[in-house]
Design a protein around this nucleic acid. Structure first.
Lengths: 115, 115
DNA sequence: TTGACATATTCCGATATCAGCATATACTCT
DNA sequence: AGAGTATATGCTGATATCGGAATATGTCAA
């Protein structure tokens, strides 16, 4: 059994760097496909396909404007990832604490104690 | 050009659900491979291989204890993902604002205007 | 309706990834 | 050293994914 599809698993969807670039490009505001093609310099089909994946996991929303399609970020889709990583927050916080503690220990040691 | 390797891209590495399960399993504390195999019920080789990927992107650290290998979470590795999603935080916040705004609009409308 | 433009979808070959099995490495204890 | 345990790695076949080119869908405008 391979990994769950990019079209159903948000984590897998953003596993592709180009899709993160796409989102990073949209972060400044809604844009239509042509604009994205210009900015990114990828073939139009590629942009559409990556957008399609992002759409299927609800990371972006589309709004038809005439013959254009304006894409925007649906932040709610990224929240699960943010929440998941948040559960590990204590690990990097603790890590910093440990570094700090060690630094203080070193400082205390150099002040007087030889052990 | 395919997506960047699971062994070099943290985002891609956690794109695999089993690897997230593995991390979720380790969140309670360091554990050796046998314990993980027991808890998860996967073939030992699979566990080792997924751990290997997590190791290559620095999401876990290993500590040999006799013939055991005790794995622990390296939270610092997840921080980049957390930071990246944080840049989109405003989107889900704004989204809630928008829902609220719309709800208020609907309420105001139903109060008098028939449209 | 016809033509032009904007975007999506389909088909293709190449590649990475997965699970499973078998085997290799590494350590411990006697 | 040799047996046994713990973990890692190599090989294989099936599958998903990617980019690219061609094509299909959809929309406007005259």
């Amino acid at each position: 059994m391979p990994r769950s599809a990019t079209t159903t698993d948000v984590f897998n969807a953003i596993g592709e760097p180009r899709r993160r670039m796409l989102l990073d490009c949209l972060i400044r505001g809604e844009q239509d496909v042509s604009t994205l093609v210009d900015k990114l310099g990828w073939p139009q089909a590629d942009v559409s396909k990556h957008l399609s994946v992002l759409r299927s996991v609800d990371l972006v929303v589309v709004r038809p404007v005439g013959r254009r399609r304006v894409y925007g970020i649906n932040g709610a889709g990224l929240k699960p990832i943010h929440d998941w990583t948040s559960t590990y927050e204590k690990f990097w916080t603790n890590h910093l604490d440990r570094i700090k503690a060690r630094a203080e220990a070193v400082a205390a040691k150099s002040k007087g104690k030889t052990k």
